[in-house]
Design a protein around this nucleic acid. Structure first.
Length: 833
RNA sequence: GCCUGGGUGGUGGAAUCGGUAGACACAAGGGACUUAAAAUCCCUUGCUCCUUGCGGGCGUGCGGGUUCGAUUCCCGCCCCAGGCACCA
């Protein structure tokens, strides 16, 4: 065999073999337990980056491990192929988004193959293919029928650079998640998916999804933002109408002295009409609407408002409450109207001070007597406490009072206990070209009419001229937009917006179970076999976006009868970022490491090994060129272990599957045998129970070190080579999910006919783990003082006696009588004197 | 402000159920082999003190506590990262 480890030829050899033998193709096998392992599919941006390499390496280890453990493993790969970068790149390069996308897919597929990932390539999906998105258009139609897809005019987030609307989830700190452009509010007609219909289930399940990281669940809970409170009606003084308000603090209702409305509140213009304040109000509203979203939302603006000239009545005190328009009230949350309780809400307090409005104290802190007067307050007291100045509710505690006050008003039809969520419906219209067309037609006579199912797919035309400014060419592409109304046959215009690309990624995982199915989106039998995904792996950046949308979509598909699961992903692993020199790898920082270059210099196995060894998967990984060298050195060391001892190893009779009894073995061979089995146990448990590949690799390295030591101190014994061979085979088998090419080659070189891939994962022998002697740590008063070796079967009492007989121990005790002796079996003894 | 993680040598990290802190690597220093280099192999490497030993003390962000024993559990702080946030 080759003396030197040369990954290039080995890796090509095995990659070709896996491809030609279709080694990773799977079908439904009712006799085998299925395991569906999925990594988040990439956007075909051009070439893969180290983040992908890390993500997919982690997944590949699990897939190969589970396969060797006897599961029927589905491990697919595909492309999240619609999206804006394709358009921008195509405009820049004078090409077509489709060509750009498919070229990138070809390049990146090849990159993934060079890394030796065990994908079933026969199931590959590209979401920009009409055979994929046609089903999404069908879902849209079904959702439209059920009212789960609807159109409304509303203020939406607009990114001027991307020339499109963004979902709430795609706005981060007031700027576009893609290009960091300031997002402005724009009133537009948009299509929405009614994710709020599932808000309770989406939230409730987060408390049961024990296979997900806590922090992702908490992020989703925060995003959904449930708050429990009361809906209250405040009658207008004029008598014609009521204003609806949501509050979590109905216990403070007796202290509500005015009302604040959002600038966009529909009643504002009526309330100020004909009043002396009208002009000032309209000017204020105009100004507020123009202010930028992040300025208005972040705590930057000073609280300002203007009196509308109208009053409403406090439903419990009957007092007149002036109605203001205020710049800090959001139309998007609750009803866009807030009852102001200056004594118990800091914003209202500041507002009341500024405009000279009354401050009525109605809560006193528990233990404070009497309640502080309004004049004494320097800031609002927002804590729960005991009610004062609240008629029959005085002396009640806040929480029961909140309910009691609401219920008492409910009898007059002025209140109800209710729940509000922060979550808004998902706006899916995008004014972009490279996406799935929304299957709707607008007819002068019939309005918005769904395309007939039989006319699907609505194919995105490829023969378009892209516009320089990035806007969509569809609205000016007559062959596309010009059509007939499906209802009346009259002249009509197609919807020219496309769907948010997150729609594609919300169900691709289900389509992998039957990517070739053409009678519908999902083949019931196959999808029932494979779904849900048993293990999903991807970046934390999708904690809310993709992972929430997918959860929603699965519930829709379930209710449409396509799926039988409630949640898509049973277990979720969110891997950390790849960092170099303290920063996330990025072109602007100039710290990008190109996977191609690494593979060329060291081979895929080294790159894989480094990604696994440098950190546990959930932590950020610090890229280190020396660390990569170290990984390569280890693989070379493993290679030499076989090449330097090739002849004796090859002729040694017993491989890993053979049994060797430890009776009568010399100590170093007994120790090697023990270490072999300990390593099998350690690696199995580290991968199976916690995905800690770094400690699994460390354990294999320890075994390699011990094999070298054993070889250095070689003594003749008939079982020497058989035991070394067992240890070496353990190294190869246990490493194989992580560095598959090198291991497969070594395995074959040692004379195995069967692929390592199809070799069952090794079992450890419990009896082989135990030594005849065990090392006991001796503590005196909790401090480490000595170590003694005792027979493995020694009782606690015997351990104690052996310990007291130890000269070092005797010295420390110095004849004193121990007050207490604690023995931890097989580990430690602590003598207290 | 609220919520969730996290803080261990020069570095990445280990210690899985309260039981030897620093496994395994990287880096550094010293040595062997070599004409030389690369590669490989061996030794040292948390800090500190002395009488240099099979030695003593200190040490897991800080301060307390529980325990025979705490990186691990409890209480109170500090710092870092992430999420939510004028949310009524």
């Amino acid at each position: 065999m080759e003396q030197k480890y040369s990954p290039k030829s080995i890796e090509q050899k095995w990659q070709r073999y896996w491809e030609s033998s279709r080694a990773f193709q799977v079908g439904e096998d009712p006799d085998k337990e299925k395991y569906y392992l999925l990594e988040m599919f990439p956007y075909p941006s051009g070439r893969i980056h180290m983040g992908h390499v890390r993500n997919y390496t982690i997944g590949d280890v699990v897939a190969r491990f589970m396969r060797m453990r006897g599961y029927n493993v589905l491990h697919p790969m595909g492309w999240d192929a619609f999206g804006m970068p394709a358009e921008n790149a195509a405009i820049k390069a004078g090409t077509h988004p489709a060509k750009w996308t498919y070229d990138n897919i070809d390049y990146m597929r090849n990159q993934l193959k060079q890394l030796g990932f065990s994908y079933d390539w026969s199931r590959e999906i590209a979401t920009c293919n009409p055979d994929y998105y046609r089903w999404e258009q069908l879902f849209f139609l079904k959702m439209f029928d059920l009212g789960l897809a609807y159109r409304k005019s509303s203020y939406v987030n607009w990114c001027s650079k991307c020339q499109t609307v963004l979902a709430n989830e795609q706005v981060e700190n007031g700027v576009c998640w893609r290009c960091d452009t300031e997002v402005v509010q724009k009133e537009m007609e948009q299509w929405f998916f009614r994710i709020t219909h599932y808000v309770d289930e989406l939230l409730d399940n987060t408390f049961k999804m024990d296979g997900w990281p806590e922090r992702v669940l908490v992020m989703q809970q925060n995003w959904i933002g449930k708050s429990t409170g009361s809906m209250l009606l405040f009658p207008l003084e004029s008598g014609d109408g009521k204003i609806q308000v949501f509050t979590t603090r109905a216990d403070t209702l007796f202290g509500a002295t005015f009302l604040s409305l959002a600038a966009e509140h529909p009643m504002v213009s009526d309330l100020c009409r004909g009043k002396p304040q009208e002009a000032a109000v309209l000017e204020f509203v105009q100004k507020a609407k123009q202010s930028k979203r992040n300025e208005r939302e972040a705590d930057l603006l000073e609280k300002e408002g203007v009196f509308t000239g109208s009053y409403c009545l406090n439903p419990v005190t009957g007092k007149k409450m002036p109605i203001y328009v205020a710049n800090f009230v959001l139309m998007a949350y609750g009803t866009g109207a807030v009852m102001a309780v200056p004594a118990h809400d800091q914003r209202d307090f500041e507002f009341a001070r500024k405009y000279g409005l009354p401050i009525d104290v109605v809560i006193k802190p528990a233990g404070a007597d009497p309640a502080p007067s309004a004049g004494e307050l320097t800031r609002a007291n927002e804590e729960y406490g005991i009610l004062v100045n609240s008629a029959e509710f005085t002396a009640m505690a806040s929480e029961p009072a909140r309910v009691a006050i609401t219920e008492s008003l409910a009898k007059k039809g002025l209140a109800e206990l209710t729940v509000q969520h922060r979550l808004r419906d998902w706006g899916i219209s995008r004014q972009r070209y490279w996406g799935a067309p929304i299957p709707i037609v607008y007819c002068q006579k019939c309005g918005a009419v769904p395309v007939a199912e039989k006319d699907l797919p609505v194919v995105l035309p490829l023969d378009v001229e892209l516009l320089e400014n990035g806007g969509s060419p569809l609205p000016v592409h007559k062959p596309f937009y010009s059509t007939q109304c499906p209802k009346c046959g009259g002249e009509a215009r197609r919807e020219t917006d496309t769907m948010d690309t997150f729609v594609e990624s919300s169900w691709y995982f289900a389509r992998y179970s039957c990517p070739d199915f053409d009678k519908g989106p999902l083949d019931k039998e196959r999808v029932a076999y494979w779904m849900p995904v048993d293990q999903y792996i991807g970046g934390i950046e999708h904690a809310v976006l993709h992972l929430l949308y997918s959860r929603f979509f699965v519930k829709v598909l379930r209710d449409l009868g396509y799926l039988q699961v409630d949640e898509p992903f049973k277990n979720l692993l969110t891997q950390g970022m790849v960092i170099k020199d303290g920063f996330k790898m990025s072109k602007s920082k100039g710290n990008v490491v190109d996977p191609d270059v690494m593979i060329r210099s060291y081979g895929a196995d080294t790159v894989r090994l480094f990604c696994l060894f440098a950190a546990p998967p959930e932590k950020d990984l610090d890229w280190s060129d020396q660390g990569v060298e170290g990984s390569f050195r280890f693989l070379s060391r493993m290679w030499r272990l076989v090449s330097d001892n090739f002849e004796p190893l090859k002729s040694a009779a017993k491989g890993l599957s053979g049994h060797v009894d430890s009776d009568g073995l010399p100590p170093d061979l007994a120790a090697l045998r023990r270490k072999t089995h300990q390593t099998i146990k350690k690696v199995t448990e580290d991968i199976r129970d916690r995905f800690h590949f770094n400690t699994a690799i460390a354990a294999v390295m320890e075994l390699v070190n011990q094999i070298y030591q054993t070889l250095d101190n070689r003594k003749d014994h008939p079982l020497f080579w058989p035991l070394v061979r067992q240890a070496v085979e353990a190294v190869i088998v246990l490493s194989s999910p992580m560095v598959p090419h090198a291991c497969e080659e070594l395995w074959q070189t040692l004379g195995h006919q069967k692929l390592l891939l199809d070799t069952p994962w090794p079992q450890w022998d419990e009896r082989a783990l135990e030594a005849e002697e065990m090392l006991i740590v001796v503590q005196i008063n909790g401090k480490l003082r000595s170590r003694i070796s005792v027979p493995a079967d020694a009782t606690d009492k015997q351990v104690e006696q052996l310990c007291l007989a130890d000269p070092r121990v005797a010295e420390f005790i110095a004849g004193k009588q121990p007050r207490k002796v604690v023995v931890v079996p097989k580990k430690l003894i602590n003598i207290v004197i």
